[in-house]
Structure formats: structure tokens, C-alpha cells
Design a protein around this nucleic acid. Structure first.
Length: 586
RNA sequence: GCGAGCGUAGCACAAUGGAUAGUGUAGUGGCCUCCGAAGCCAUUGAUGUGGGUUCGAUUCCCGCCGCUCGCACCA
């Protein structure tokens, strides 16, 4: 018998069929609205009857009864179907159905096979991280990196082709300042001993100088124009600077397990800008204003007067220019049907203008308009509720943040498990520390700012990485005690359907994985998955306390081992999708 | 000034227009001769404010209050 991975989607189809049968052609308009239900009511609920009946002045309960009567026999065998309240249809999967799902989805590979139906044939290009060269990665960058990586893994798992592009800021105005600083302010000794620090100092010093004296600002801009028009000296400097920062970026990416397929920075698009200027002008979208080439959007309350500057008055490009060229390249070269760009929420205006412009441009030139998602996220705040900074007022460097996370985790692990060899404790501290930082960024709705507190993210209690990693080790320890591999199918052979309250509750939570993946990927919000995993870990703890797994009765033991094995599978699969490394013990 | 986002228990956060607004912490009271107590069970406590739409609003719309962010050549 085929067991569908996403039971809710399956029910949705069955309800549509039943509506057609029972309501006639008008049933075409019925939208089931199946969603996971509160466990008190069932596993899934269909809410669509209420709106449908209301709009037609019908009795919703009567309509619900008609639809339920027309459901396939198979559905009625699998579920307890009830009509409740004003016209909700509730579906409660019977224990045999729970067992069938758990037996079918018994490995990460099979889960992936089930999930890969979601986005089969889609090609998403994900643009994330995208740091500026010549600046170190700092705490402000981590959220986009971590969320971006999780989104890529999730979409891939759910069947999409994903192209990861690190759109490095290697061509902007900062280079004018940096080159000017290099030429006038550099300290050669410092450049040799700690090149990245020195570059950052030069940028800051040049930036400050440009703010003080307009002549310096003009000089910096002139350096940029020289660079962008191919000046050999500036080009060589630019390459040197990029090489230095790229090495530093790669070190952090390795540490966080983040990878890219391409790192086409802004400079890559330099020779593709003339086409943008030309086409937008020819299409009547771009116009000269105060010496710059800009796009206005007359239909928009704000962008009718707030320009989208696509070429600066000194002739230099900016990020609007390169972003437009990038849009085109991603559609024409990569053939992406969906473009996802992650940046913090402060850049909303820019991307709204970019998208308005792109749509009009592509439409006027007969190109396919892709789907576009600007995935935004809030800032990380200090415990005072203000932008997180070091005592000296600088942003906290990511390298230092990650090192501190590992140190703090090491101290905690040493406290809890002093008998483990130091090498093991270091390894655990790495997974816990880095995982904690990651999970903190993922577990909250990305729209909001969040307050960063070491004690909170490294706590072993609550919706945290340490709690989830602990749950994993506890399941693993059951199998270790037996000398068995949790992923060996023979371990769970002969399992019967879940029977006790705790077993059933855990099984029902496990089958919710599919709906969670669907929700997480349609909304591109990893916190849905985090919440689910935390609930799953809690459900397991309840089960673990209520029902002893290693009992003598072989049937009972087998079904509890099955539930434990699947809990482990889904916890590990979910955590890996989020980018966390799991542990056997801690 | 214009625009955007956010206001949910003491604190930190959930809730894809659905049923009695969930979870964690902190507080209170229980549970280790028993598979890892880094755990479990029970319990106290909240939608800024005023309208509107809806069978149904934390969610959508409008006003007000509060906080944050953005707004011509940085990205």
C-alpha cells in the first residue's frame, strides 16, 4: 500500500474529489483548507466548509456531512473522520496508519524521496551572505549566512534545484575610499603582519577623512571611477585586497559549513552594465536627474519621487546598477525561475525598487519575469536592546563570536561531563557552541530583531540547540545500551502500532514532519522547523519518562524502539537541514 | 515630514483568518534502589489602545500611543 509522505496534501486532494462528487460542478469552488490540527481535535482539520457554505447560504454542517459521505473508502479506513463545531472536518489517523507511515519513512533517503515531490522541477537561485570585501565578517552578517544556508538545504531536500551565489560586494564605493586610504595612510608593517586588520583600519580612516573634508571624498570617488574604468594600478590593488578578505571569509564559511556554487561579486557584472543603462533608457524607464541616471515609479506613493539611482552623476555604477545586471544574468544564464535574496530588513526599499524596475524592464523587453523573494531578517541586539557591539563600540567580529561560543560550551561540557577525554569535550563544545549560535538565529521568526544572550542560547533548557542535541544523545544512548544501530531496519522489525497515550502522541508528532517542511519552505522561515523539533524533543521526553523502552515483552520493546529510532531520524534530519551537527554523546 | 517593521504573562518567544491564545524561563508543589534528572508531572500568569470587515481577528483594514529602521548618488 502506498503511504503518502505529506498526508495533509493527500487529504486535500481526496476532499476535493469528494466535493465534486457530492456537491456537483459547484464543488469545483470548494477549497478544503487542510492543515495540521490541535491534537485535541485530530491530526488534520479541513476548515474550507465554513467559507464555502457561508458564501452560498448553506448549512455548513450539512455540507460537511455530504462531503464526508462521499470520501473514498480508503480515507475512512485510515482515519476517524468527525464533524465538529460549526463545520470543521477532523481527521484522526488510526494507530495502524501511524505505524504504516513510520515504517515507510525509515531513513533520511526515504524522507527526502517523499519531500522531493514538493519542488520537483523548480530552480531557485539563493543569494546570501554577500559580504563586502575589505571588511571582516561580524555579528551582523551571521544571521543571513545561517538562515541562507538552512533555506538552501531545505529547498534541496524538498526537491528543488538550488544554485547558491555569494554576491560579494567587491566593486562599490568602499573601494574608492579603501584605495585612497591605501595610497595615503597605509602602514606597511601592519599590512604584512595582519593584513585584514590593516585594511579595515584603512577603510575606517579613509571613511572618516572623507566625511571631514569634501575634497577627500571627491578624491576617493575619483579612485573608484579610475578602478571601474580599468586603471591598471587600482585594478592590481583591488585584486590584492580581495584576495586577502576572501581568505578570511573562507575560513569562517568552513567553520560554519556554508558553501556556495558561485561567488560572482559585483565586479563580475561590470561589463554588463552598459546594456542595463541602454535598455532601461530605451524602454523609457530610466531618465537623467541631477546628473544621475534614475528610475522613478509614478504609481508608487514614495518611489514616484524617491529615485532608484542606477548610475551616479560621476558616471560610476552602484549596487542598483549591478543588482539589475545580476537579475538579468540569473534569469538568462542560470535560468533560475525563482530568485531569493537574503538581506537585513533595512534594505527593503532598495529591493522593492529593484523588483519594480526589473518587472517593468523584463516585460518591456519580452523576457520572462521570474519569481522573486526578498527574504529579510531583523537585527541582533545586545542585552540592552540596542545594536550589539563590543565595549569599544565596534561590531563583534564573527571569528571572535564563534571562538567565544566554543569556549563557553567547552566550560559547560567540562562541568557536566568532566570524565570525558578533553578531545571529546572539544568536539562536543564545537557542535554545541556553533550550534547554539546558529540555532539562536534560526529559532526566532526572522522578521523580528532578537536579543542575543549567551546564557539564553547556551541553556540546556528551552528551545535551544543544547536541549535538542541532548535529546538526540539520549535516544542514541538507548541503542548504544543494546549495542544496536538505530538506523538498522532489522532493529524495528515486528513493531506493532503505537498503543499507549505517550506512544500515540509521539507518533502523531512524528508524522507532522511533512507538514512542517511544507510550511517552512513555503514561508522560507526556518523557525517553523525549530519549533517543531523542540516540540518533538519534548514529546519524546514525555514518552521516555512515561514508557520504558527496554522492557522484556519483545512486541512492546520493538514498537518503542521504532518510535525511538524515528525520533532520532527526524531530529537528526531536521537539525542537519538547519546546519547543526548532532552528537552521539555529550 | 514621508514610508516600513514591531508592540502577546515578570523576562524571552510561538500561533500559515479557525475551536478553550501555545512554549520556554522565572515562581509554587511533586518525581531519581527504575533505559542519561542536561529530564518529567502539576500549577500561577498575557494579545498597547479605540473603531471596522468576518460565521469567526493576535492575524486583515483605519485612527491613536510607544519603540526601531529607511528616505539622491554607501551597500
Amino acid at each position: 500500500m502506498h503511504v503518502s509522505f505529506d498526508i495533509a496534501a493527500d487529504l486535500d486532494l481526496n476532499l476535493k474529489d469528494a466535493a465534486l462528487i457530492s456537491l456537483g460542478p459547484e464543488g469545483n469552488a470548494f477549497v478544503p483548507e487542510v492543515r495540521p490540527a490541535d491534537p485535541r481535535h485530530g491530526d488534520f482539520q479541513a476548515n474550507g466548509v465554513l467559507g464555502y457554505a457561508k458564501a452560498r447560504k448553506l448549512n455548513p454542517r450539512a455540507v460537511a456531512e455530504q462531503i464526508v459521505a462521499a470520501l473514498r473508502d480508503n480515507t475512512k479506513v485510515q482515519f476517524e473522520v468527525t464533524i465538529a463545531g460549526p463545520g470543521f472536518i477532523n481527521f484522526k489517523l488510526k494507530p495502524a496508519g501511524l505505524l504504516a507511515w513510520l515504517q515507510t519513512y525509515d531513513s533520511a533517503g526515504h524522507l527526502r524521496t517523499g519531500a522531493s515531490e514538493f519542488y520537483k522541477g523548480h530552480h531557485n537561485l539563493v543569494d546570501f551572505s554577500s559580504p563586502n570585501t575589505a571588511k571582516q565578517l561580524h555579528v551582523g552578517h551571521v544571521r543571513g549566512m545561517v538562515i541562507g544556508e538552512a533555506i538552501c538545504r531545505l529547498l534541496e531536500f524538498c526537491g528543488a534545484k538550488v544554485t547558491r551565489d555569494n554576491h560579494i560586494g567587491d566593486w562599490g564605493t568602499q573601494f574608492g575610499k579603501l584605495i585612497w586610504g591605501y595610497k595615503h595612510l597605509r602602514n606597511d608593517a601592519a599590512l604584512t603582519s595582519d593584513p585584514l586588520e590593516e585594511l579595515e583600519r584603512l577603510y575606517k580612516a579613509a571613511d572618516a577623512a572623507a566625511k571631514e573634508t569634501p575634497a577627500t571624498l571627491d578624491a576617493a570617488r575619483a579612485e573608484l571611477v579610475k578602478l571601474q574604468s580599468g586603471d591598471a594600478e587600482n585594478l592590481a590593488l583591488w585584486k590584492k585586497i580581495n584576495a586577502i578578505s576572501s581568505d578570511a571569509f573562507q575560513e569562517i564559511y568552513r567553520k560554519l559549513g556554508i558553501r556556495f556554487d558561485y561567488e560572482y561579486g559585483e565586479s563580475f557584472y561590470n561589463d554588463k552594465l552598459q546594456q542595463v543603462y541602454k535598455e532601461l533608457t530605451a524602454a523609457g524607464l530610466a531618465e537623467e536627474s541631477q546628473g544621475a541616471l534614475v528610475v522613478f515609479h509614478p504609481e508608487h506613493p514614495r518611489f514616484k519621487t524617491q529615485p532608484f539611482i542606477i548610475r551616479k552623476s560621476d558616471g560610476a555604477s552602484n549596487y542598483a546598477s549591478t543588482d539589475l545586471a545580476t537579475m538579468l544574468y540569473r534569469v538568462e544564464h542560470f535560468k533560475a525561475d525563482t530568485i531569493i535574496i537574503l538581506t537585513d530588513t533595512r534594505q527593503t526599499d532598495h529591493f522593492e525598487q529593484l523588483w519594480l524596475t526589473t518587472q517593468k524592464w523584463f516585460a518591456k523587453t519580452g523576457r520572462t519575469v521570474p519569481h522573486f523573494e526578498h527574504v529579510t531578517f531583523g537585527s541582533i541586539l545586545g542585552e540592552d536592546g540596542k545594536a550589539i557591539k563590543t565595549r569599544s563600540g565596534d561590531p563583534i567580529k564573527l571569528k571572535a563570536l564563534l571562538a567565544e561560543a566554543e569556549e563557553r560550551a567547552f566550560a559547560l561540557v567540562t562541568e557536566k561531563s568532566p570524565d570525558l577525554p578533553e578531545a571529546d569535550r572539544r568536539d562536543i563544545a564545537n557542535a554545541v557552541g556553533i550550534g547554539a549560535v546558529r540555532y539562536a538565529d534560526l529559532s526566532q521568526n526572522r522578521s523580528s530583531d532578537y536579543i542575543f544572550a549567551w546564557d539564553k542560547i547556551l541553556s540546556f533548557e528551552g528551545n535551544t540547540a543544547p536541549y535538542l542535541l541532548y535529546a538526540v544523545t539520549r535516544v542514541r544512548s538507548i541503542f548504544r545500551k543494546l549495542g544496536l544501530d538505530a538506523y538498522d531496519p532489522s532493529v524495528t522489525a515486528g513493531a506493532t502500532a503505537p498503543a499507549t497515550d505517550a506512544e500515540i502522541a509521539l507518533a502523531r508528532k512524528l508524522i507532522g514532519f511533512a507538514s512542517t517542511l511544507r510550511l517552512t519552505t513555503t514561508q522560507l522561515r526556518p523557525h517553523f522547523l525549530c519549533t517543531y523539533l523542540h516540540e518533538l524533543a519534548g514529546e519524546f521526553s514525555t514518552f521516555y519518562a512515561a514508557d520504558k523502552v527496554l522492557v522484556d515483552d519483545p512486541a512492546v520493546r520493538a514498537r518503542r524502539l521504532l518510535l525511538s529510532a524515528r525520533t532520532l531520524l527526524i531530529l537528526e534530519t531536521g537539525l542537519n537541514l538547519l546546519g547543526l551537527r548532532t552528537l552521539a554523546r555529550m
